[in-house]
Design a protein around this nucleic acid. Sequence first.
RNA 1: GUGGCCUUAGCUCAACUGGCAGAGCAUCGGAUUGUGGCUCCGAAGGUUACGGGUUCAAGCCCCGUAGGCCACCCCA
Length: 437
Amino acid sequence: MPTFRAPRGTRDLLPDEAARFNRFARVARDLAERYGYRPIETPLFEQAAVFERGLGEVTDVVEKELFRIAPRTEDSEAWALRPEPTAGIVRAYVQHGMHTWPQPVRLSMMGPMFRYDRPQAGRYRQFWQFDVEAIGDPGPAIDAEIVELGLRFYAEVGVRGAEVLVNSIGDPVCRPAYLGVLTSYYRRRAIDLPPTDRDRLERNVLRLLDSKDPAMAAINAAAPRITDHLCDACAAHLAGLRAHLDALGVPYRMAPGLVRGLDYYTRTAFEFYVAGREGQQQAIGGGGRYDGLVELLGGRPTPGIGFGVGLDRVALVLDEQANVAGARADAVDSGDLGTLDVVVVSADPDDTVGRLRVATEIRAAGLHARADLGRRKLGRQLEAASRDGAHFAVILGDELATGHVQIRDLEAGTQRAVATSDLARELARAVKAHRHG
RNA sequence: GUGGCCUUAGCUCAACUGGCAGAGCAUCGGAUUGUGGCUCCGAAGGUUACGGGUUCAAGCCCCGUAGGCCACCCCA
């Protein structure tokens, strides 16, 4: 039993997994760049009020999941680790006067988020998101761009069968009236509601719509739909989004029960899934429009939309899909596992300087090389090199006296002597041939 | 935050109704001192998650704590 371990709900990303996350970052960065979304980095913590006000005081995220930082002094302000990226980015938008930039401001970020809830597979207290925001465009064309960008990310990262569920949750003009209609609908049936759903009736009526209780299926099927109660502007917005998605050939499903957990959402709401998976932590990403958030955080009224991709869950899905297709297929195919071209070994256990010097020279030629600096016998060094995945070994031996070393092809089991002066050039050629062969 | 299941070496797992804790893989070393992947031999590695209790005796039974998992709540 180790004395210390990673805190509950957190985990170490060991090299294979960390390399995979590096690849996610690469894909995310490329994709954002191609779509014109510029990188931004905001602090991992903010004044707690940014989240309390932004996400809503009575949301679960704020009420029980916020990772609060104890004040250092009596008068220091209350901070909290970010539970989601949008509030911080919007805070930055306001603080730095981004309304003076060409609108909309397209931004992208990848990093860890923190929520103090109970861990489960695919649910961590520290988890990673790729996030994209477009602030300053009322849509709906930008909504379609965002949704399409999200689906593109899953495809490029190797997830098969990602799909998007779309809904509109109205805006301050029409949602209050709909909530009234919905509440009275459920109140009339209160005696038929399971206990948790009776609680939800008072806390957050919308949640009832996607209750998992089988007893609710019939009641929910007959419940008034928000899409039938949208004001003209919201209805037009939704129609516009659908028209754009259709025109772009983006497949999507309407989900009348889809609700989001944060107060800032208006109109467009969507979540990404992979169909047919077991377990409950199924959403692999989600987002929506937040037309009131900028104003809520002190800016002038400005519309916005964005989404976050749960990278830990993407990794989970890739593992599941790899179990069918062969372990870590995504990793091998895309070079996640890292490449090592050459290991420099020596017959002389004391010659560490020679091995370092030669490895340095090889690296200068652009190859991936490491020196074996142990005192193990030659065979062991070659064995280790082979298991590290190196294609070649450079062997320093007696030939050094005549200015030569051996280049050994670890897969073919063949080797030849070359002059040290030609080593880098010869190796570069061999590695290049190997990579393309 | 609620309920349930689980925890033995780095990993995957054994150990009859309580009776001295094992294997495979991985790691390290060796098989006459410059050549690996196969094979053989050997070593190291455990307060059986942690803390109590019952018992002559606890990995096994009881209680607590921590962690993991599952279902809720909720969400990525």
